[in-house]
Design a protein around this nucleic acid. Structure first.
Length: 454
RNA sequence: GGCCUGUUGGUGAAGGGGUUUAACACGCCACCCUCUCAAGGUGGUAUUCACGGGUUCGAAACCCGUACAGGCUACCA
């Protein structure tokens, strides 16, 4: 068992590419087979750095692969010539202008256009003579005139196409380089790929692949087509990594886009995916990328992190937005851990911790007048303020004692005491445990903010 | 225009002729916990599988047609 993933260095790797790579990887590894990464460079020049960028993404997600760069040498033409000799391909001298014109005419008449095979029955001697005088030509595949072609796809089942619908596709372009479709067949054969995996949109091209394998005398690999992933946006993968989504969560989530496990288990590490993956359970219908579910997965993975790993993970996101130079390590850790089960992804830490860094809080006038309209509440807030002023040692225990004292002297209940304090000090009705918030805010900030209300 | 593929709830989906009054998960809603949020816990959430017909004792599952969606139809990949 051997599968291949092809990098397109001129295109940014996105979520669907990563999912395709993952599936191909899992199919091979589940069977203790080989996974090959290769680069689409047979008819264009690509820079080394672009290739490295793509490779680094695969490395980041933890794939183990064998990297093979296709041979730069043009071996493809020789195979095309071989097909010409056996009558399965032919030289074509039609110019692009001629073809475009025919295509335009057909589309105006709203009839389907396929290359009309003008050059197919061109005498071979005449063709050779034209090539000698350096006339431009391409090599086209000669499709069967009648009958039908059936191939078996491991996901989509038997697919049958009428041969009359198969176009005599170009194998070698006039500059001598191969087309993608042709190069793939040759490359995969040389790499001994047993299971050729590709996106569902190549389903209609696969009969042509099959005929090429057969006509070249190559052994035909198994075909596996993956369903598409529907997304509203582009460049999602980079965004996710930027926003602080964990690679484990991304991998886990995208594995479930187009595949479902036998059991109801839903959390999988890469190793567990290898054990459980079965291409028979790949879905045929396109999967919709749902950011809500990915957020939930990421949330779960964040909560499962050890405190140490969690701190290392979120801290850079905090520092991206706030200056923490004047804060103690203890304070920073306390703050970050307080939000461990609140954030869905890294940059969300900036939003949730905003109240600890901003000098002023936005207090709605309505809220202030609500508080001021209640004498009992104002009384409690005043006493609270006085007690905070008196406090010399600032820690969770001393804050607890202050609150207990206020509670006892004013007969305030939890709701009538905690909530007014929360609102006047954080500006929000919700947030983590109040005592922890007070501790992190510090005496000064609290008194400053209480001044607005009391 | 021709061809290929798909269609189960707001989302991912299980299920491939009868233990399906359609699993599981996200989301949503309610309640419990709780100063609030989050987390955690409990429960609710598709009279039914795009529609129409057929096969069958029996269909979400098999067959045909229609509709809708996506793809292919390049000297693009």
């Amino acid at each position: 068992m051997k599968t291949r993933f092809m990098i397109f260095p001129n295109k940014k790797m996105d979520i669907e590419d990563l999912r395709d790579a993952l599936f191909s990887y899992l199919i091979a590894k589940h069977d203790k087979g080989k996974f090959v990464v290769t680069v689409e460079n047979f008819n264009q020049n690509v820079s080394e750095t672009e290739i490295k960028n793509c490779i680094s993404i695969l490395d980041f997600f933890g794939f183990h692969y064998e990297e093979i760069l296709p041979n730069k040498e043009n071996i493809y033409k020789a195979y095309a010539e071989k097909l010409v000799k056996s009558g399965k391909a032919y030289y074509c001298f039609c110019t692009q202008e001629e073809l475009n014109k025919k295509r335009m005419e057909a589309s105006e008449k709203k009839i389907s256009y396929q290359y009309d095979r003008t050059c197919r029955n061109f005498p071979k001697d005449e063709a050779r003579r034209k090539i000698l005088i350096e006339e431009n030509y391409v090599i086209r595949q000669a499709m069967p005139n009648e009958g039908q072609t059936t191939f078996h796809d491991l996901v989509y089942g038997d697919i049958t196409t009428l041969n009359s619908c198969l176009e005599d596709q170009i194998l070698i372009k006039s500059d001598g380089t191969p087309t993608y479709n042709f190069a793939n067949v040759i490359n995969d054969t040389f790499l001994n790929i047993t299971h050729v995996t590709m996106s569902e949109d190549l389903l209609t091209s696969t009969p042509k692949y099959l005929l090429l394998y057969e006509n070249l005398g190559f052994s035909v690999p198994k075909f596996i087509h993956y369903p598409k992933i529907i997304t509203k946006f582009e460049n999602i993968l980079m965004d996710l990594l930027n926003q602080g989504f964990l690679k484990e969560a991304i991998l886990n989530y995208i594995a479930l886009l187009g595949w479902s496990p036998k059991s109801t288990k839903e959390f999988f590490s890469l190793e567990e995916l290898i054990l459980n993956f079965d291409y028979n359970h790949i879905n045929k219908r396109p999967a919709i990328f749902d950011i809500k579910k990915l957020k939930w997965f990421n949330h779960q993975y964040i909560m499962k992190l050890s405190d140490e790993d969690y701190l290392a993970f979120v801290r850079p996101y905090l520092e991206r937005f706030y200056n923490v130079e004047d804060k103690s390590e203890e304070w920073i850790h306390y703050l970050l851990l307080l939000f461990k089960n609140q954030i869905n992804f890294g940059t969300e830490i900036a939003l949730t911790t905003h109240m600890f860094f901003t000098p002023l809080i936005d207090l709605e006038e309505k809220e202030v007048s609500n508080l001021k309209g209640d004498n009992k509440i104002m009384e409690a807030l005043k006493i609270f303020k006085e007690e905070v002023k008196k406090t010399s040692v600032w820690n969770v225990d001393s804050i607890k004692k202050v609150l207990e004292f206020v509670k006892a002297t004013t007969n305030a209940t939890g709701k009538t005491l905690y909530m007014p304090i929360r609102i006047s000090v954080t500006g929000k009705k919700q947030g983590p445990n109040l005592i922890d918030c007070l501790y992190l805010l510090g005496k000064e900030k609290i008194l400053e903010r209480l001044n607005i209300v009391v």
